[in-house]
Simulated scan of single mutants.
Amino acid sequence: MTEIRTPRLLLRRWTEQDLAPMAEINADPDVMRWIRDGSVLDPEQTAAAIERWEHEWDDEGFGLFAVELLASGELAGFTGLSIPWFLPEVLPAVEIGWRLGRQFWGQGYASEAAHAALEFALEDRGLDRVVSIARAGNDASENVMRKLGMELDREITHPEYGHRLTVHAIDLTQYH
């Protein structure tokens, strides 16, 4: 089983016990306002998402990690790697993403987890380039991207929802 420890976090595969806390995160309109059309997800949609994330691990050898706080064992959300199928114009690509519960914002957890996932992508999985995609105006996510050393690659329009997206990227030669 793939696990990564950082000073404060455990990045690990998903368990049944993660469904309720992740469903709570996905039900928060403040968390979800930057994702897809901004709609919250119900527990069934969250369960289906976790199942898809686990299948991506099996199919691709990478995926979205559950992010657990080492100090308390709480599920903070996720970070990790996925293929952004929804955005064909950036393919082939692997995206790094994250989603944390509101109570975990502003404490550096997203940057800490994403840095570990980026290192996993470039060093462990041998990827030579990683992108990150955010809805334009999502300053918090774009700040994490900059902390990772990513640079703006392009701005495009979401093919389904029509809002502007920023695509940041980093390749192995830029990673330090």
Rank of each mutant, 00 (worst) to 15 (best):
P7R: 13
Y161P: 03
Q45R: 11
G80S: 11
G38Q: 10
K147N: 05
F78R: 12
Y175E: 00
L64F: 14
E123W: 08
L64K: 11
R154V: 01
P43C: 06
D42V: 00
R33P: 10
I83K: 09
Q45L: 06
E24Q: 09
L127G: 08
G38I: 12
R5T: 12
M150V: 02
A169L: 07
E16D: 14
G126V: 10
A113D: 10
A121V: 08
Y175W: 15
V131F: 04
G149F: 07
S111V: 12
L10P: 07
Q103I: 00
P21D: 04
L91R: 11
E151D: 00
T2Q: 09
V40D: 05
V94H: 07
E60R: 15
V67A: 14
A76Y: 09
D18H: 15
G80P: 11
S82M: 14
N26E: 00
R129W: 00
T6C: 02
T6V: 04
R146M: 01
H158M: 03
A49S: 15
Y109A: 04
M22H: 11
A116F: 07
A114G: 07
L127C: 09
W34F: 15
W85Y: 14
E160S: 13
R8Y: 12
R135D: 08
G97H: 03
H115N: 05
A140Q: 13
R99S: 04
A117E: 07
R146H: 09
L19Y: 12
G149H: 07
L41N: 05
H163Q: 15
T46W: 09
G73E: 09
E3H: 05
E68S: 11
P29V: 12
K147G: 00
E68L: 10
D128F: 14
D42M: 00
V167F: 03
Q174I: 03
L19F: 11
M22P: 03
F86Y: 15
L11G: 04
Y161G: 01
E142P: 02
